[in-house]
Design a protein around this nucleic acid. Structure first.
Lengths: 233, 233
DNA sequence: CCGTTCTGTTACAGTGTCGTTACCGTAAGG
DNA sequence: CCTTACGGTAACGACACTGTAACAGAACGG
């Protein structure tokens, strides 16, 4: 789970804007709505989002103008923009050099397709940050590329949650993490559930890790941590 | 992804040049800008780029002249050139013997299409580099030159998508790839569709590969990978 | 030493993900 | 124009996974 992406929706039709925002939220993004072109432009400048959905026809200022301004300013030029156009509008210009949008959707469009394009564009423009690939904690090694967890030289099969949980602990080896933090990192920001659920998965993880499971320590009243050094009992 | 390609943009309209450079950079190239014909020619000679985008109408020296000179010199003759022309300009001559450009774009053009042409031309003129020709994963061999896939010594007939899918998995053998990544690599960066489609083709691929199909592993919640080592069950 | 609070463990039912098949639209090839 | 192979989507079933609850045990405080 990457960091949450902020997406600015500049669209004057309130219903449409809210529908889009609703879907964005469902996909795990943080949507902001601007019903007016100028407001949107201001918002984008003041607090640059990760992506902008921009209506072509807007009161106050045309979408093409906003796009040009944003693409012309160094600070905002790298924000990817998807134009929302009505059929028959000047699509060539929009994605051409004159306006410089990165992609477009013709109304009416399916929200599903819009979500897919958002995802694709974000991936395309935000190339994976150089994240660490291999974690080692005592005899435990986690290869994130191969999605392989070993204790010593023996592979251990983990479920999705066990894997994420172990990875999250290993990323902050030595430091205690509360159940709530773990719930956020492993289960997702909007997950609602019993924090005791963590306990269950810690147990399962310890079991699968065998002797190395002891490296996962309970910090009574606070949460869990994984030892960074092999422990001398 | 190969080594980064250097692309020289010879174009006197600063805005256009910078927009193109911006997009080139976004696509992973290293753009250089020359706002003047002579400067551009000098740059190309001194430090030959992998491709040149050349405006037809230039101060100092016409684009056609630059092109002729470059194509006439042995050292620079093999650099592919895309001419940027205004409508109605002498396109026939440009790509004909007389000037010798490899491709052209008529202004105004979409940056997206320009990027596609750059990519295509680079692929065409820089025939597969030290790219690996034959992949072997366990009993599976993929000969990319002959477009031949074998399991053991028996040929397997694959469709386009199955072939690309297998190749993509084999190129990153051992490493997990998400459905989204596979969709991008196999289906194309702007393809929009259900990511469950991947499942279907994985199934078809497994079937055709017979016993060796087991080498393609499902990583629940993450995607697929192909085992790099023959597995000891 | 006892009570309370927190944690470990297990069982179980619900859920989500994946494998598979079928179907239909479409592109390819004759 | 017809045939055929191919590819995307939907549907369904199977099963691994997961959340919750319940109980047992440990740690802590007085």
């Amino acid at each position: 789970m990457g960091p949450m992406h902020t997406i600015l929706v500049i669209e004057d039709e309130r219903d449409l804007a809210e529908l889009i925002a609703f879907n964005l939220e469902k996909e795990g993004y943080r949507p902001l709505i601007a019903l007016d072109g100028l407001v949107g432009l201001e918002a984008a400048r003041k607090n640059p989002p990760d992506l902008i959905l921009l209506d072509l026809m807007l009161p106050g200022m045309a979408g093409t103008e906003i796009c040009k301004i944003l693409k012309g300013n160094e600070k905002t030029a790298s924000i990817p923009i998807i134009m929302l156009t009505a059929k028959g509008e000047e699509i060539d210009r929009v994605v051409g050099f004159e306006v410089g949008a990165d992609d477009y959707m013709v109304k009416p469009f399916s929200t599903r397709e819009l979500m897919l394009r958002v995802k694709a564009l974000l991936r395309r423009t935000q190339p994976e940050q150089p994240r660490k690939r291999i974690f080692a904690v005592g005899p435990i090694t986690i290869d994130t590329e191969r999605h392989l967890v070993c204790v010593g030289d023996k592979e251990v099969m983990l479920t999705t949650i066990e894997y994420k949980l172990l990875l999250d602990l290993a990323e902050r080896a030595g430091r205690v993490q509360s159940r709530d933090v773990l719930l956020q990192n492993v289960w997702g920001y909007n997950y609602v559930g019993d924090s005791r659920t963590v306990d269950t998965h810690v147990t399962r993880l310890r079991t699968k890790l065998g002797a190395a499971g002891d490296l996962i320590r309970t910090v009574r009243g606070f949460g869990y941590k994984i030892e960074e050094e092999p422990q001398n009992e």
